[in-house]
Design a protein around this nucleic acid. Structure first.
Lengths: 341, 341
DNA sequence: GCGTGCGATGTAAGCGCTTGTACTACGCTG
DNA sequence: CAGCGTAGTACAAGCGCTTACATCGCACGC
């Protein structure tokens, strides 16, 4: 393997100069720089990451911790992180932290402690006090995306407002009997998001002077299948049928659309459905949704951690200002009572 | 930061002994081992990865290159890789290699050259000659999953057989007019898989003595939407309508099911649909499919690379023996001409 | 009772960089 | 023309480990 000494010899300079040239320091003359660069090229040299790390204390690597590796939303965030970090020449080491407690310990106590990474991005993971202590005691920047942890600087979307927006869209169209597909209580233990969306839903209804019958809440597990079953419950239950469903995720909303169709309801004529996320299948199913731009969320997190690396601050605040946007497609319309057809 | 010297001092031994203890070497007495371990615990020590790498030349890290980070199939493979590597205490550095040529160069010439990883797993990426040379010249094990590259040891599924199995399932049920939804020619330039599935389809038909009319091939882009449109073409075209569709992916198969329903056909009564992959939504849509167990494919790749790391071989052969299995659900049945109902 | 061998431990030489400090040569200024 | 600042470069000391080799006892065999 060709080392920095080989390059120095080839270029007729010291290793220090080679190092300065390669790391873009400006106190190298143009002539020297050119010689070094040509030596690098002819020898096919590239720095040894570990030697560089050891000497400088910087790894140019960010650790990313994700709870799911096979769910659309999380992989899109990951994708955004990867894109933004790659742009700046940073590597990413990926840690999939699932339920397994022993494995969690391995990751949080083991891998991440070894000065392998300059910073950590934790995507939507619930950490207990001990784990949080562990992360923070590493002495490197930590940024969370959308998690519920108050002690870690977090970038998130305002879930209450998101849900309000979706709900207000339905109210604006003239719907008065709304149902909500939210989360299982179990599921919500880890992700408080569903509760906040439920709150936003209720707030919007309250502001509109509508009190929702409790039967119009149905829990599900954030999958298409879960949304399907929940919607069947909602639509099949005797009594005044809701004219619109607000599902806390696009996948559940898609399930709801399919359920409605299977029951013989037309969407949106008989039943409006709105979701949240901006899922890739939304366009195909003509799903009206509040897009929360997960790709950008990932990119913002990456940018934030790099920023923190470049100019360390003692205090990084929580930010609940990730952008979102109502995308109106074909799954919502005025309720039939207000229609001419 | 506490270093190995601190531990050595605390335990009253040399750093060499600490190092031997921690790396599980066996020539350390039980008493000494205990002292070291307790010192490690009280000081909260963990090795510096870069120092260890630099001294030993091993990183305990595998580089994984994926072409997509937001498609179910690839993220599931990634998930399998991550699980298997984590089990052995290996880290993974993730590289998302999309179309962008400059970025590709950065990855392949830059990141991976820096002795950052002990091995590389390339998931379904097409590499040109120069890129392949680059990878192989790194002098570390490289394993591909499902790519078309003859110079890199590849683990893959036998796509011809996979397609034969799916097709033979339809033939066994009594279908004689079959259609296939495959790939756009463009798409196939990168992934030769679709062509091989098409071959398997044709072989099965030929063996059964059936010559398919060319109109029964329809290209799509491996998405639900693509499958939907392709199926509409197939079903709407005048002439003898096929009684079954074999789609080269589950997502396209799901699109085909939805298209058939939208056109007023019942699945499977009027139209059978079979896919390939084992997609998570398959159960919900009652999709008959040939599952190719992507999670296991990822795990097998990880195991293979670790094996190669432990006992290097000059030559690692291609293996086309990844398991697959026909999962018969509700989207396929005998054609109506053969039914009593 | 002494040589042998082996298990347990210590010594120290790197691994390949980065970077603070020292040095050189050059062009100024006064 | 001496004195001085500065840009450009070299020197060399680490960074925190791993590991080949040296050392040291001690049990064992004869």
């Amino acid at each position: 393997m060709v080392s920095i000494d080989d390059v120095a010899r080839e270029a007729g300079v010291s290793t220090a100069t080679v190092s300065r040239t390669l790391s873009g320091k400006n106190n190298v003359s143009d002539a020297t720089r050119a010689r070094v660069e040509s030596a690098v090229k002819t020898l096919g040299y590239s720095v040894s990451a570990s030697a560089s790390n050891l000497a400088s204390g910087r790894t140019r690597t960010i650790g990313v911790i994700v709870p799911f590796l096979d769910r659309w939303f999380f992989t899109v965030i990951l994708s955004g992180i990867a894109a933004a970090l790659a742009r700046e020449g940073y590597d990413i080491t990926l840690h999939h932290v699932a339920g397994d407690a022993a494995h969690r310990r391995d990751i949080l106590d083991g891998f991440l402690r070894r000065r392998r990474v300059d910073g950590i991005i934790a995507v939507s993971i619930e950490l207990d006090e001990r784990e949080t202590d562990g992360l923070l005691s590493l002495g490197i920047p930590v940024i969370a995306v959308g998690g519920p942890n108050p002690r870690i600087p977090t970038l998130s979307v305002d879930d209450v407002q998101l849900a309000r927006l979706a709900t207000e869209h339905l109210l604006t169209l003239g719907h008065e009997r709304l149902a909500h597909i939210g989360a299982d209580p179990d599921f919500d233990l880890d992700f408080h998001i569903p509760t906040r969306r439920w709150q936003g839903f209720l707030q919007a209804l309250a502001d509109a002077g509508i009190s929702p019958p409790p039967t119009h809440y149905e829990p599900a597990d954030f999958t298409v299948e879960g949304g399907y079953h929940a919607a069947k419950q909602i639509l099949g239950r005797p009594g005044a049928r809701p004219t619109a469903i607000f599902a806390a995720s696009d996948e559940m909303a898609i399930g709801a659309i399919l359920a409605a169709k299977d029951l013989g309801f037309r969407v949106p004529e008989d039943m409006s459905v709105v979701g949240i996320d901006g899922h890739e299948l939304g366009g195909f199913f003509q799903l009206t949704t509040v897009d929360q731009f997960p790709l950008q969320q990932g990119e913002r997190a990456a940018v934030a951690i790099l920023d923190q690396l470049n100019t360390p601050r003692a205090f990084v605040e929580h930010r609940e200002d990730s952008p979102y946007e109502l995308i109106v497609r074909g799954s919502t319309a005025r309720p039939s009572t207000l229609r001419d057809d």
